[in-house]
Amino acid sequence: MSDKKPKRREFLFTASYAVGAVGVGAVVWPLVDQMNPDASVKALASTEVDVSSVKPGNTITVLWRGKPVFIRRRTPEEILEAKSVKMEDLKHPEKDEDRAKDPEWLVMLGVCTHLGCVPLNDKGDYDGWFCPCHGSHYDTSGRIRKGPAPLNMEVPKYEFVNANTIKIG
């Protein structure tokens, strides 16, 4: 057998394997991607909420993308409390101004950053929220102060369409 022959043979087999592998990859992708959010789910990206009836000191909970969103109209005391916290006391330092565009309105995902439970309103050691699952305490700005949760409650993308309507998403 000459030296060249096995090389050519090897090339043919390698090429077949390589092309075959590309095909398998191309087939696997649709099977994986079908589990991603579908077009109708993606289309429901935003929701509008009328907040005209919310009184100071009250929270409403609305559903957005299948998760609860807390919309709280904060009292002046709560705002003061949130603003007066020193950054070095925070586990996840964020200024209140960065979390609430209009200090009166706090909009955030009502999902504990520990393992996804919904925290309870007006509970806990910091006058904000308390997660009953594993005991995380959040302050009046929704920031984590005590307990196992690593991060502050997430603020989603939102905007005021007018004075009474908030568009989430």
Partner: peptide, 13 residues
């Protein structure tokens, strides 16, 4: 119809 229209590659599958 949801599979055919909205699910990613649903029509193909």
């Amino acid at each position: 119809e949801h599979i055919m229209r909205d699910v990613n590659y649903g029509w193909l599958i």
